[in-house]
Design a protein around this nucleic acid. Structure first.
Length: 404
RNA sequence: GCCCGGAUAGCUCAGGGGUAGAGCGCAGGACUGUGGAUCCUGUUGUCCCGGGUUCGAGUCCCGGUCCGGGCCCCA
């Protein structure tokens, strides 16, 4: 009976990991350059943390379980709530603004498909303490710079849920939330069924408003009572910072805790799951017993990005030390001397020189260092450049110098 | 929860009632001081599971499990 990995999980081989680590390194580097510092929360939390804001229905899509003492726990399905819980528990007293970033695996019990797994990774940031447009600008710019540095082809869309909430302000909360979900889905037919008259026309117009920042002028005409200052300032700043984006007033985000500017990024080549980034400004802290602090942040879908990201990670120089019968331990000593300069492997199968060289070729090594009787007597080694096939007799010291 | 497609060697897959196959890979050798080519040899199978039809099922039928893609959902 062969044991398979659980549904929706993946194994990562060295090539995968090297690529993912390189992507991760770039994300960390850029976030840190903006002053963000890493936090890490537990892999599992109290179930309440995730149901408070999203309702009991979310349990269906969470890995929830009872521990041996009967506590209701859950594997984290996302990281915004845990990071805000961390803020409330440990950090309410530290100077604002607070800049945190995270990179960790999350778990959701969903039907897997392309770009969607039951264990997946998110990289994200939370900027806590400011409701200024400058906070939105910083976070959007940061998300943009990361995706840009990774040379992804993507589109950043920026909207404002406050505007939609404003238009829907006379509806009951349930009804408004329902409409928000339909807007998020772009389900125009269903919207027509739920809305009529003036409201229907306004929502229709807003959902269609996708374009450069000049669509704000059109929106103002349709919704004259809404204060567009915040969104306009964000757009103007992003323009000046040469962040490429589209205004999209139909972005609703599934979640109810977003309060203002929201944004999403979409990429091609991912099938139905094309969203690689989502974020916005929100208020969550007070739900977890903290102060009503404003925050803004985003999460990047790391796995989807890794799938479409095409970057060449630089490989270290690889050396295979090949030994003739009886000289294996001499080879080990030479290998040790080279390890400060390159990745070195030696034969552990007691194979022929021919097989050792064949293996060196199979693993795409750069050099074979051949340890033989003749060379050893003269205190030399034979170095073969496996790319050019050239072989020369040299000293260990000289070879080390060529490795830099 | 729904729809579609899959499951046969380590991997990719062919075979559609009559002895279990190919390519690739892996290991050894041809060649005991030299890699990528070539050739030879070896290597592993509950043909996903259970039941049914049949003289006989990897193959046909029914049920199930698992995997992938698409809905739903997407914090």
């Amino acid at each position: 009976m062969k044991i398979e990995k659980p549904r929706g999980t993946r194994d990562f081989l060295p090539d995968d990991i090297e690529k993912r680590r390189e992507i991760e390194r770039i994300m960390r580097k850029i976030a840190e350059s903006y002053g963000y510092r890493e936090v890490l929360t537990p892999t599992f939390e109290h179930l309440d943390l995730f149901t408070i804001k999203s309702g009991e229905s979310i349990i269906e899509e969470i890995y929830a379980f009872k521990d041996k003492s009967g506590r209701d726990l859950a594997l984290r399905p996302e990281l915004t709530a845990p990071v805000m819980r961390l803020y409330v528990n440990e950090c309410m007293g530290i100077p604002k603004p607070i800049r945190f970033y995270y990179f960790a695996n999350c778990f959701r019990y969903e039907r897997p498909q392309k770009g969607r797994y039951r264990e997946f990774w998110q990289f994200g940031v939370e900027l806590i303490g400011s409701s200024s447009y400058l906070a939105d600008v910083e976070v959007i710019e940061l998300a943009y710079r990361i995706m840009d540095e990774l040379k992804l082809s993507f589109e950043m869309h920026v909207g404002h849920v406050g505007l939609l909430r404003h238009v829907l302000r006379d509806l009951s909360e349930d009804r408004a939330n329902k409409i928000m979900r339909l807007i998020d889905k772009r389900d125009l037919d269903a919207l027509d069924r739920y809305l009529d008259g003036d409201l229907r026309d306004k929502i229709h117009s807003l959902v269609d408003m996708v374009g450069k920042s000049d669509v704000l002028e059109d929106a103002k005409k349709i919704i004259p009572n809404f204060n567009f200052d915040h969104l306009e300032r964000v757009c103007r700043a992003l323009d000046d910072l040469e962040v490429d984006y589209k205004v999209n007033l139909g972005i609703a985000r599934g979640l109810e805790y977003y309060t203002g500017v929201v944004f999403e990024a979409y990429a091609e080549g991912l099938g139905a799951q094309n969203q690689i980034c989502g974020g916005g400004s929100y208020r969550l802290s007070h739900l977890f017993g903290g102060d009503d602090v404003p925050a803004t942040g985003f999460a990047l879908g790391f796995d989807r990005i890794a799938e479409i990201c095409d970057l060449d990670s630089k490989k270290p120089v690889r050396v295979v030390v090949v030994s003739f019968r009886g000289l294996e331990v001499e080879a080990l000593k030479i290998a040790d001397a080279i390890r400060s300069k390159a990745v070195v492997v030696t034969d552990v199968m007691e194979r022929s020189v021919k097989k050792q060289l064949s293996y060196a070729n199979d693993i795409s090594a750069d050099y074979a260092v051949i340890v033989g009787e003749k060379e050893l007597k003269e205190g030399k080694i034979a170095v073969k450049d496996l790319k050019t096939k050239e072989q020369r007799i040299t000293s260990l010291e000289e070879f080390l110098e060529t490795l830099g």
